[in-house]
Structure formats: structure tokens, C-alpha cells
């Protein structure tokens, strides 16, 4: 063992270390470490932020208490400024598992409302994005005149317009799912258009020339060369788009008086000072965002494998 260069193939040499090293080289261990630190910071933050209010409560209760009691109290406060992670977990559990999924008290019900408008908006946005990209690739006029406006459209904080869109469409007797989906559409079409445009222009000149020598029509070039080449770009931008669609759906639920949906849950929580409710809705939204992006990623793998890509 004291040699400088131990033989590489010596049986059993450095097994323990290699396992450790593999753990260190994959990102599982670092991620777990970071998450653990975050949770610790969270608990510490809960102590700090709830210290004042809980202290006041303990003092007014009159009974003697120790420092430990005080710390524990900050982690189990009725109306915490910052709820501890386990309180959020309890809130999630009670609002998911103990009530029927169809009742408006269930988080699943609200998540479903948000999810449905997200998906509708995402579908329309993706379709619109692809259509625009195809149009821009084929028309120089569209490229020159429309493209700058598509980019400019995203510097407009569209979410600010959300209340107006909701109210205006409400006046036209369009309520419920569609107005929220409109906001999601607006947010999700842009990444798809830009990504798809890049993808449709990605085939190199050699391949395009080859199609020309086959005397392929524009539609054939589109269907057999450009679209397949654009698939990886499409999926990459769809991941961005679906996250944006979710944000759109949540924000669109704020101004409607907030009847149902995760955004409504946020608003209700902030009205009634139910911080655990807000955080539970936030966790639900985050989990949903993660799942949606993951699903798009899976679809990407499957489709690219089917089309012979190297994914």
C-alpha cells in the first residue's frame, strides 16, 4: 500500500474509494448535500422569523418556558411567518390525502384546474409557435416584418395584461378555462417559435442541395428534411414553454376573484394569513412544473429514439 503506484488490477484495491468517488462524480451526492443544507437553513430561518411572534405568545400564555421550548414553538406555530418544512408536509398531506379529490378543499382539485388550462394553453401555444416558424422560414416578408415584433412581444410584461384579458374575455361571455389558456398560450408560443425557427434552419446547405437535386417540392423539403432536423430544437423549447405556460396559468387565476386553481390558493392563503397553505400551493406548483418538464423530456427521448436520433 505504501508503493507510489499500486498495481491497477490488484484484487480489491481501492474498492471502497471507487464507490465513494463514483458517488462524488455523479451528481446525486452533491444534490443531496445541497438539499440537506437548504432544509437546515430553512429550519434556522423558521426559528429566526417566528422567534418574535412565538415569544410574544409564550409570554402572554404566562407559563414558564425554556429556550428549547421557544425553539420548538417556532417550528409548530399556528400562524407562522415561515412554516417549517414538516408543517408544509403536514398541510400537503391533509389537503391531498384526507379530503376527496373532487372537493374544493383538496389541493389535487386546484392542481387539476391549473393543469388543465396549462395543458390547453401549451398545446395551442406550441401549435401556433410551429406554424409561425414554418411561415417565417418560407416567407422573407414574414421574416423581416414579423420576427422583430415577436421578439418585442416578449419584452412586454404580458402577465401585467392578464387581468385585462380575463375581464375582456369575461365580457364576451368567455369564462373558465379559455381565458387562462390564452395567457399560457402567449407565454409559451415564443420559445417554440424561436427554437423551431432555429431548428428549421438547421439542416446544412449540402442536405438542402441534395433535396433540390431530387427536385423536391417545398412541402417535401419541409416534411422530410426540415421538420425531422428541427425535432431536438422543438423539444428543448417545449421544456421552456411548458414551464412558462404553468406560470401563465397560475398568474391568470389571480385577478378572476380566484375561485379555483393553485393561483387562487395562493391568493386565498395571502388573504387569510395561512402561510402553510401558500407554501403547500407553491410546493404543488413546483412539483407539477418538475413533472411536466420531465414528461416532455421523456417524450423527447422516445421520439428521438424512434426517429433515429442520438438522444
Amino acid at each position: 500500500m505504501a508503493t507510489l503506484n499500486p498495481p491497477l488490477a490488484a484484487p480489491g484495491s481501492g474498492v471502497g474509494r471507487s464507490v465513494l468517488r463514483r458517488l462524488g462524480e455523479s451528481s446525486a451526492l452533491p444534490i443531496l448535500a445541497v438539499v440537506a443544507v437548504l432544509i437546515l437553513v430553512w429550519y434556522a430561518g423558521a426559528v429566526l422569523l417566528n422567534w418574535q411572534t412565538e415569544g410574544d405568545r409564550l409570554v402572554s400564555a404566562g407559563a414558564p418556558y425554556t429556550g428549547l421550548d421557544h425553539v420548538l414553538a417556532t417550528w409548530s406555530a399556528k400562524r407562522p411567518v415561515l412554516p417549517a418544512p414538516h408543517q408544509i408536509a403536514v398541510e400537503l398531506w391533509t389537503s391531498i390525502a384526507t379530503v376527496r379529490p373532487t372537493s374544493p378543499r383538496s389541493l389535487l382539485f386546484h392542481a387539476w384546474v391549473t393543469l388543465s388550462s396549462t395543458l390547453v394553453g401549451f398545446a395551442i401555444g406550441t401549435g401556433l409557435g410551429i406554424l409561425l416558424a414554418v411561415g417565417i422560414v418560407h416567407s422573407r416578408v414574414l421574416d423581416k416584418s414579423l420576427m422583430p415584433w415577436i421578439i418585442a412581444s416578449q419584452t412586454v410584461p404580458i402577465l401585467a395584461v392578464a387581468p385585462m384579458v380575463i375581464v375582456v374575455l369575461g365580457n364576451l361571455q368567455i369564462t373558465g378555462l379559455l381565458p387562462k389558456a390564452v395567457i399560457s398560450t402567449y407565454l409559451s408560443f415564443f420559445p417554440v417559435t424561436v427554437g423551431m425557427l432555429k431548428g428549421l434552419r438547421s439542416p446544412d446547405v449540402m442536405h438542402l442541395d441534395l433535396m433540390h437535386t431530387y427536385s423536391a417540392s417545398r412541402a417535401q423539403i419541409l416534411g422530410k428534411l426540415r421538420l425531422p432536423a428541427a425535432l431536438p430544437f422543438l423539444f428543448a423549447s417545449m421544456k421552456v414553454a411548458i414551464a412558462a405556460a404553468l406560470v401563465g396559468a397560475i398568474v391568470a387565476e389571480l385577478p378572476t376573484g380566484a375561485v379555483a386553481g393553485l393561483g387562487a390558493r395562493l391568493l386565498a392563503g395571502s388573504y387569510y394569513g395561512q402561510t402553510a397553505m401558500i407554501w403547500a400551493a407553491l410546493v404543488a406548483a413546483s412539483v407539477m412544473a418538475g413533472l411536466l418538464v420531465w414528461i416532455v423530456g421523456r417524450a423527447e427521448q422516445i421520439v428521438l429514439r424512434r426517429t433515429g436520433g442520438r438522444a
Binding site: S27, L29, P30, I31, L32, A33, V34, V35, L159, K239, V240, A243, L246, V247, I250, V251, L262, G263, L266, L267, G269, S270, I278, A281, L282, A285, S286, A289, G290, V293
Partner: peptide, 19 residues
């Protein structure tokens, strides 16, 4: 450790912390 988490958070609806 931070890069995947940062990427995840960038996709989350962060506006929700407004309340």
C-alpha cells in the same frame, strides 16, 4: 449540486412567492 437545482428552480413558477 447547485447546477441541477438552479436549473430546476429556473423552471419553477417563482412568481408564486409574491404573497
Amino acid at each position: 449540486g447547485l447546477l441541477p437545482i438552479g436549473n430546476l428552480v429556473s423552471a419553477l413558477p417563482v412568481v408564486g412567492i409574491a404573497p
